[in-house]
Design a binder for these strands. Structure first.
Lengths: 337, 337
DNA sequence: CTGAAAGCGCTTACAG
DNA sequence: CTGAAAGCGCTTACAG
């Protein structure tokens, strides 16, 4: 139930018209300062609350943004997207907007249903947070609304996207390992599993190339099967001096493996991760890793969708958000012969 | 920007009135089945989307619920409330409602500002998720809107609340320790910090009482200061055989402490936690703990707020949601002399 | 500086 | 079974 005090009530109380009240409360021209003051005071005394639905119906904006997260990314230990959503909500607030969370169920994704936020005209734009299936991408394209992919992209759909610079982050952290004297560096991750694992691998690869190091198949270690289920990591017979892991959780798994085999990090080998999530601080010693800048991702996403709303024809394309290396204690400088 | 197709457009196309279109699309009486069908078909062909703002302005409902989480509970390793929010969003969906996330900043909490969802009439009710300061509770009481405290309560404010049965959960898990032969059982937590830590302590206390065990001050170990900042846990000189920790993260901290001092869990002492969050699986061995039923909390909360909306005078009071002991490997049966 | 009129898109209550 | 009229609370464009 809403407060039943309207601008008309305030107007009646003061013997003015509701037009004047509207102007005063919105601080528009055409009302004397003294009247404005009086109106504001009375409004506050009466406990007046603005009716945003009435405004919406007039100007056609809901002042809401839908944030759609596919259900499968919302598992029990998987709060990354929720955290991104939270940052989005905070940044939307600065534009006078609100965020409505829409978990995309597997059924809706399969049946290509529009989200309810769309069919009920609840939002002025939609941010899709987390990779959706190809068929559903088409459904999204059919939505007549500003939209944005966050943390993934599709090369065929012409939809703006914001992604972490996986390539550059992995490139930089591999450079760092090489600077620290490492020459035998393994990459841990199934590069056929997701595009971000693949992009991170390519960054690692580029770093090797640039430093005249040759990549060897045996230094590519599988961390999960095609379905994304983690498998035991098999250490190579001849151990490398450093491991680039595609994410912190995998680095954490690798630590367990190394410890079980009697290796000590960083003395016997160095390990780096990616994401700077909770796992990065749970290893002993804590992990040097690439931090995904969640706040920056959210800020960029909100700005991009706001621009689409105000200028429907302007496109931002694919925006990369740089990560940042967090230096901790899992890397040791080694000497080369 | 909204789709600019309205009921009027559909009506014009079919040569009927917009009243008839409204009735047909809402499946109300007074329109023949055949006309309804025709109208639905044309609506879908034209890509009609319902304008919820227009409905809102008529019936006074926004069909949104605000979920307010104090900023301080949204730290980097703290996704419990976000997960609850996610479940709330899913359950709201079943009522045709949406959830709007509102992070309560420390400034707004100090300055006793109403949340924007309230002052802009964006929601039909507010769920406050996580303990807010006493002064702000008064602010919340002044909001003329259905409201609900989730995961905390205040004995003085007459506001419905849903909380985990902290008391009973701690009581049960302490009973379990006693069944396993433990007689010297410590409680880890600052009982002046939050009401849930206090309630869990009382459940522990009741279990001791019922079994004729005497509580000793020295067995109450502080885990954090008044502001909630974790402190080093000081182990008592004479070690107990078991520890009841007020939450899993503290149990995790205790593990580190015990390991540092050379104690092994569960051989040297047993440890139990509360929450069954990520920390419960990160200790070695994993933790026996009380699982907070997030889905049930969310379901109950949504039901309660919906009831308040439909019958403003009905109150649900303080509802307890039962937890569930998850048995793992951090407790050992011991023999008594 | 102030306000009467019209309209946003829908629904409700009533008349036919 | 169908629709003209009125109204929800606000804002815009215009007249004074």
């Amino acid at each position: 139930m809403r407060s039943n005090i309207t601008m008309k009530d305030i107007a009646d109380k003061l013997g003015v018209s509701s037009v004047t009240v509207s102007k005063a409360l919105n601080n528009k021209e055409g009302v004397s300062e003294s009247l404005k003051q009086k109106i504001r005071t009375v409004a506050s005394e009466m406990g007046y609350r603005f009716n945003s639905a009435a405004k919406s119906i007039k100007d056609g904006y809901s002042y809401n943004i839908g944030v759609m997260i596919p259900q499968r990314f919302t598992g029990i230990n998987d709060s990354f997207y929720l955290r991104v959503y939270q940052q989005i909500a905070i940044h939307l607030d600065r534009y006078g907007y609100f965020g409505i969370l829409n978990i995309l169920s597997s059924e809706d994704e399969e049946q290509l249903n529009f989200p309810r936020v769309y069919s009920e005209n609840k939002v002025d734009g939609i941010i899709i947070l987390g990779q959706i299936g190809k068929p559903y991408i088409e459904t999204v394209q059919n939505m007549a609304l500003p939209k944005l992919f966050l943390d993934f992209y599709d090369e065929h759909a012409n939809i703006d996207s914001i992604v972490t610079d996986n390539f550059y982050g992995a490139y930089e952290i591999t450079n760092y390992l090489i600077q620290m004297g490492h020459r035998e560096i393994a990459y841990v991750g199934n590069i056929y599993s997701t595009s971000s694992i693949q992009d991170r691998f390519l960054g690692y690869y580029k770093s090797l190339l640039e430093h005249g190091l040759t990549f060897e198949e045996r230094l590519l270690l599988k961390d999960r099967d095609q379905k994304g289920v983690y498998v035991d990591i098999e250490l190579p017979d001849k151990m490398p001096t450093a491991f680039v892991c595609n994410c912190d959780q995998v680095a954490y798994n690798l630590f367990e493996r190394l410890t079980a085999q009697g290796y000590k990090v960083p003395n016997d080998c160095s390990v780096v991760g990616f994401d700077n999530d909770i796992y990065a601080t749970l290893t002993n010693p804590p992990l040097t890793t690439v931090e995904v800048d969640i706040a920056q991702m959210a800020r960029t996403a909100v700005k991009a969708i706001m621009e689409q709303i105000s200028s429907p024809n302007r496109r931002s394309g694919r925006v990369l958000v740089q990560g940042k290396i967090i230096y901790r204690d899992s890397v040791k400088r080694i000497e080369n012969n």
